[in-house]
Amino acid sequence: MPVETSLNIAVLVSVGQHPVSGRARRADQDARAVELGLTLAGRSLSLVHVGDAGEPALRQYLGMGLRTMTVLQEAPEADAASSLLQYFATHPADIVLAGVQAERGEASGLLPYLLAERLGWPLVPRIAQIRAIENGRAEVLQALPRGQRRALTVPLPFIATVDSAAPGARQTAFGPGQRGLFDIQRGLAQADVARAEWVEAQARPRPKRLNVVKAKSAAERFKAATAKPQGQGGQVMKQESSREKAQAIFDLLVAEGVIRQ
C-alpha cells in the first residue's frame, strides 16, 4: 500500500461493552479502526480516549502493540466532542479514525460528525479499507451491505468511521497491554447538559411486528399472509421429483431475494 510515512494518524477509542455479558472491553469497531491505523502507520499511530485512564479495558487497545495512549481525563458526563476539538487544535492529524458508533450509552455515532463539522474536515462513513494515500488524497473503500464496496477519494485531512466489515482487530496481548503507558491530559470539556435530562432504563424487548405485508403485488401479499410462521420446523420434501425439489429451493431463493429477479 503506497502510504506516505510521515502521516499523523489518530484513532479515537472508547470503552466498549460485551453484547452478552455487558462487561467492559475494547469496542469492536474501534479496535478495527486501530487495526486499520496500525497497518497504515505502525507503532507511530496515536490513540486518543476521552474518559478515565483507570478503566482496565483500555489496556486491551495497548495490547495491540502500542506503547502509549493519550487519555483526555474527563468526568463521565463530559462532552467528549469539545474535549477532542481542543486536543486536535494542538495536535494536528492527517487522518482521524473512529468506530461507526459506540457500544455504550447513547451510541449515536454523532461524535465524528461533530468533529468533522467543527474542524471543517470531510467525513467518510463506514470504510472498510484505505487503499492508498497519494498527493494529499486518500482512496478509501466504503463498506456496503452484502459485501459490496464503493471506492471514494477524499483529501487529507479527513475523518473516517470504520465499519464492522473492515478487517478484524488483531488479538490483544496481555503483557504489552499491562506495560503500555497513558499520557493523561486534563480535559477541559463542558458538561453534556442535554443528556442530564434523559432517563435510561434496561432495554425493553421491542414488539415484533406481526404479519407485515411487505410485498408489492397482491400475489406476494397473499404469499406473505399464508406463509408458515417461523420456528415450527421446516417443510421436508421426500416423494417429489428432483425437479420439484429443485423448484421449491429455487422459489425460496427468489422469495428471499438472493437471486436477482
Binding site: 466498549g16 461493552q17 455504550r104 450509552g105 447513547e106 435530562e197 435510561e200 434496561q202 432495554a203
Partner: peptide, 29 residues
C-alpha cells in the same frame, strides 16, 4: 441539533431510543 438516534418509539413530545449494544433504552424529549 442533537438528533435522536435508533429511535423506535416516537410521539410528538417524547422519544424512546435504543442505546449502545441494544442494552438500554433512553427516554428523552
Amino acid at each position: 441539533e442533537r438528533p435522536a438516534v435508533h429511535a423506535w418509539q416516537v410521539t410528538e413530545t417524547e422519544t424512546l431510543c435504543r442505546g449502545g449494544s441494544g442494552r438500554i433504552d433512553i427516554r428523552r424529549h
